[in-house]
């Protein structure tokens, strides 16, 4: 699926990365805890989050996240936008809640980038 299709499914606005919308994505990870994202999200995935601060961009940069979808129609602060532009990470904004966003993308074939936790880390 391309980011253009993601935009259509989520009725999303493009905040950063207007020139990168042909990018292909197959997987996604949704969370509001950046440490959770760091531990489990895979490179090349979409990141769905309710956060809008610059740390979302930093976290995505560290992991080579393909693109960020900010949910609940929240608009990030200028420094978040500036950092995403600098690091060339596309940022989309949708009015849907995280649950609905995940549901709509899953329905159209986007998979979780970790389907199942298969180690004991999460329980330790």
């Amino acid at each position: 699926m391309t980011l253009n299709e993601v935009i259509e499914i989520l009725d999303a606005d493009v905040l950063v990365g207007q020139d990168q919308l042909e990018m292909e994505v197959k997987t996604a990870f949704g969370a509001d805890l950046m440490s959770d994202v760091l531990a489990f999200a895979k490179s090349g995935s979409l990141l769905l989050t309710g956060l809008t601060n610059p740390q979302v961009i930093r976290t995505s940069d560290i992991l080579d996240i393909a693109a960020i979808i900010m949910v609940r129609g929240k608009k990030p602060a200028p420094e978040t936008i500036r950092l995403a532009e600098e690091l060339r990470i596309p940022v989309l904004s949708t009015k849907y809640i995280l649950f609905e966003t995940a549901g709509r993308l899953y329905e159209k074939g986007i998979k979780g980038c970790v389907e199942r936790v298969d180690n004991n880390f999460a329980r330790s």
Partner: peptide
């Protein structure tokens, strides 16, 4: 054991 995205989907 599923991820948040997967279970929400």
């Amino acid at each position: 054991d599923l991820s948040g995205f997967e279970i929400a989907g």
